[in-house]
Design a protein around this nucleic acid. Structure first.
Length: 425
RNA sequence: GGAGAUUUGGCAGAGCGGUUGAAUGCACUAGUCUUGAAAACUAGCAUGGGUUAAUAGCCCAUCGGGGGUUCGAAUCCCUCAAUCUCCGCCA
């Protein structure tokens, strides 16, 4: 959620951003400003009312002390009048605030100047790729769901039996490979200075609201009504909410957190080849990296996070490309996002494995996450960033597919210390 | 699941219907003293909102969250949550 003050002061930038995001209608901004004006007007009226009530209450207190009961009783009349007025003002103020909030929730984050124009994912800019030539593994190469069956390492049918579609069962070396990847990612994150957290996999409503899953993405989360708790769709939710309602000191920066969690997503998506096997799941594992940054340094931090993700992919030997998301594909809360895709040689397509974003103050505003600097008396909003480093299923998919040989599936050297084997056969 | 106690500023801890945004101590910041440090002393030290050029003043709100009683609530009532103790159950 953008602060109203930002919309007031940077209205032109917000309009430009909305244009990049292919919005036609900008009237919401004027609605917000006029609702905010109304909010101020009501707030002023209410404050004046309360100030008078407080003064009268004090007088009555004095009068009672002096034994002037009759005078006190007459004062009560005005006080009761004010009280009725207060009720009305309170109601109006509350409803205006709700309308304002509702309007603010409709405005996406202000896109960074470097975000290109574009309608859909086809307009994303290829920012960098590695290596330049794509791997060729021959026409008889199998997609990962067939490899999974051939080597008996992932059982999709068993997942259906136990739970339902989208909940695969990893088995034997498949399970070990998952664990090895998680461990590898966490060890790498630690050496890049991220503090590891082990967090709850269910969160309360305040947390879901804090990172913006509520109210707009409510349908994507599993919900347990009896306890009013949500299954996390990403570790970003519990990790970032650790810092909800916190005021940091300037020298607390940078705050760098990481954690591995399963992620639960209700989104069924479309059916067909694009969601086969591991391509799209209801439950998957991910290592997330989060940074809380001084606004002055947040874009350097974003570069650092991208470099970290790149180094993981290089160590795994997976061909990848980095996309700068265009306005049409940029997430609602992000100011700038780089997507990382690995090339699956058997499926002959790119698969998204990571998304690294700077949210600037958009999340921090909702979280009430601020910092105190030496030269400013008022706390300022921080910048938050996060990224996957990495999500497992599609890494697993490209790893299995690209490394298949007639002898078996080769495990990248960097992973071997974590798997304890060099080949799945 | 049952019974009881508790929840006050960064921490500790007063206050239990009327200048209490809140005593006091610690911590923190600045200053005095000192060659420097420590000690001592002095001063400052919450957040949000309104007003404003102002991050100066002034006003409003906030004592776990929400609601209520009252002219007036940190103080009384209801409700939810958390913490502690005892019992039960249990990895």
């Amino acid at each position: 959620m953008l602060p109203v003050s930002f919309i007031r002061e940077e209205k032109e930038r917000v309009i430009l951003s909305l244009k990049k995001r292919n919005y036609q209608d900008f009237s919401i901004l004027d609605t917000i400003i006029s609702l905010d004006d109304e909010r101020k007007r009501l707030q002023r009226a209410l404050d004046e009312n309360l100030a008078e009530s407080n003064a009268i209450a004090k007088e009555i207190g004095q009068l009672f002390k002096q034994g002037k009961r009759d005078e006190a009783e007459t004062k009560k009349g005005r006080s009761t009048e004010l009280k009725q007025l207060k009720g009305k003002l309170n109601e109006d103020l509350k409803s205006t605030k709700e309308q304002l909030e509702e309007a603010l929730l409709q405005v996406p984050n202000c896109a960074h100047p470097s975000v290109p124009y574009g309608k859909s994912d086809e307009d994303n800019q290829v920012h960098q790729d590695w290596p330049t030539a794509l791997p060729e593994i021959g026409e008889e190469a199998l997609p990962h769901w067939e490899l999974a069956a051939k080597y008996d390492i992932i059982d999709f049918k068993l997942g259906v039996k136990v739970t339902g579609a989208g909940f695969p069962v990893y088995k034997g070396k498949g399970a070990i490979l998952q664990r090895a990847l998680i461990n590898f990612f966490l060890v790498e994150a630690a050496s890049a200075g991220y503090i590891e957290y082990m967090v709850p996999h269910v969160v309360n409503e305040d947390s879901a609201r804090g990172t913006g899953q509520l109210p707009d993405k409510e349908g994507q989360m599993y919900y347990m009504p009896k306890d009013e708790l949500y299954l996390i769709p990403t570790a970003e939710v519990p990790l970032t909410n650790i810092y909800r309602d916190v005021i940091l000191k300037e020298d607390d920066f940078p705050v760098k957190l990481t954690g591995h969690t399963p992620c639960f997503r209700r989104e069924a998506g479309s059916y067909g080849a694009h969601v086969r096997g591991l391509n799209r799941l209801h439950q998957f594992d991910k290592v997330e990296i989060v940074q809380i940054q001084n606004p002055a340094n947040s874009y350097d931090a974003l570069d650092g996070m991208c470099a970290h993700v790149e180094s993981l992919l290089k160590q795994l030997g997976l061909p990848y490309r980095i996309l700068r998301l265009c306005g049409g594909d940029l997430g609602f809360a992000a100011a700038l996002t780089f997507d990382f895709e690995t090339y699956s040689a058997a499926q002959k397509r790119w698969l998204e494995v990571s998304s690294v974003s700077n949210f600037e103050v958009f999340q921090a505003n909702r979280l009430k996450l601020r910092y105190k600097s030496k030269d400013q008396k008022k706390p300022q909003l921080v910048h938050t960033l996060n990224g996957s480093a990495l999500a497992l299923p599609r890494i697993m998919a490209t790893l299995l597919e690209n490394n298949q040989t007639p002898e078996g599936i080769k495990i990248p050297v960097a992973l071997q210390p974590f798997t304890g084997f060099s080949m799945i056969k």
